[in-house]
Simulated assay, not measured.
Amino acid sequence: MNCAVEGLDLEARGVSFSPPRGPKLIADISLRIAAGERLAIVGPNGAGKTTLLRCLFRGARPSEGSVLLGGEDIWSIPQREFARKVAVVLQESPATFPFSVRDIVMMGRIPWRRGMSRWSEEDRAKVHHALEHLGLESLAERQFSTLSGGEKQRVLVARALAQEPRLLILDEPSNHLDIRHQLDILHLLEGLGVTVIATLHDINLAAGFASRAAILNGGRLTAFGPPETVLTETAIAGAFGVEAEKFRIGAEGAARFAFSRSSYSGAFL
């Protein structure tokens, strides 16, 4: 899906954010991902992952620094153009929407709609394609509010795909999903060809999904780069305060981690 859509590179330059009269939630974060790469952001609760995402999709203006999308400052891009380039899937689920699943996914086509014109055949085809890829055809006429948490999550991902973005930002896309649908969605995201940024709690999912990984801890970027060099036993111990053991399933298998509780309390190395 979206095979004709190419990703955009994204760069954060010294991004910090603090609410009015509040503490600094993230500080001096700099990273760059090339067009079509997949970035997994991991870190403990309260590390600043969601705050960073908000700065990347204009949900919050950085207190310091800037974010560039395709070389342009995101705050200089007209709103409609930005909505055609960037789609966002957040953890919060709008459970009170009085709309069907098909209606929700159709909302992803709003940035491409001209005035108050009717939905085009192209719009309907894009929505059908998104529903099909997320296995939601049988739920298309159901009320969104009647769905389970996992079903709602899949609908919101489908809405983002129908938007045909060049950058897709997701906050815990595997949240509420069973193992099969976690793997299905991440596999789908891998094949889109667009740039993807996702926060993930599951280190093993992050290691298998990402072409770039970032660790946030205490509002700071403590590691960034290829997952095989970022997601190490020492780095995970420092960020999460657990013992981590890395292993592989088979000679050519992807890296996996096993965890146990730890008394580790030192600063990140």
Results as ranks from 00 to 15, higher is better:
80 R>S: 05
151 E>C: 12
84 R>Y: 06
40 A>Y: 02
43 G>K: 10
28 D>C: 07
88 V>D: 03
160 A>G: 13
90 L>K: 11
157 V>N: 02
65 G>Q: 04
133 H>A: 15
97 F>G: 02
42 V>S: 12
90 L>P: 05
142 R>P: 00
57 F>Q: 04
104 I>W: 05
26 I>T: 00
132 E>N: 12
61 R>I: 07
136 L>S: 10
25 L>R: 08
101 V>K: 03
62 P>W: 08
60 A>Q: 09
151 E>S: 08
97 F>K: 03
107 M>G: 13
92 E>S: 15
91 Q>V: 13
98 P>D: 06
78 P>G: 07
158 A>R: 15
151 E>M: 10
72 E>P: 01
65 G>W: 02
168 L>S: 07
117 S>F: 07
136 L>W: 12
26 I>L: 04
161 L>T: 03
91 Q>C: 00
52 L>W: 09
99 F>H: 14
146 T>K: 06
105 V>N: 02
114 R>D: 09
48 G>P: 01
138 S>D: 08
128 H>M: 15
72 E>C: 06
53 L>M: 11
108 G>V: 07
126 K>N: 13
122 E>T: 14
53 L>P: 11
68 L>H: 13
47 A>R: 06
34 A>W: 08
49 K>W: 03
106 M>N: 00
102 R>I: 03
139 L>W: 07
107 M>Y: 09
136 L>G: 08
68 L>A: 09
135 G>M: 01
150 G>R: 10
25 L>A: 14
87 A>V: 08
167 L>P: 01
98 P>F: 02
153 Q>P: 05
81 E>Y: 02
147 L>C: 09
157 V>S: 04
81 E>P: 00
123 D>H: 10
145 S>F: 13
120 S>C: 10
48 G>L: 07
70 G>I: 00
70 G>R: 02
49 K>L: 11
112 W>H: 15
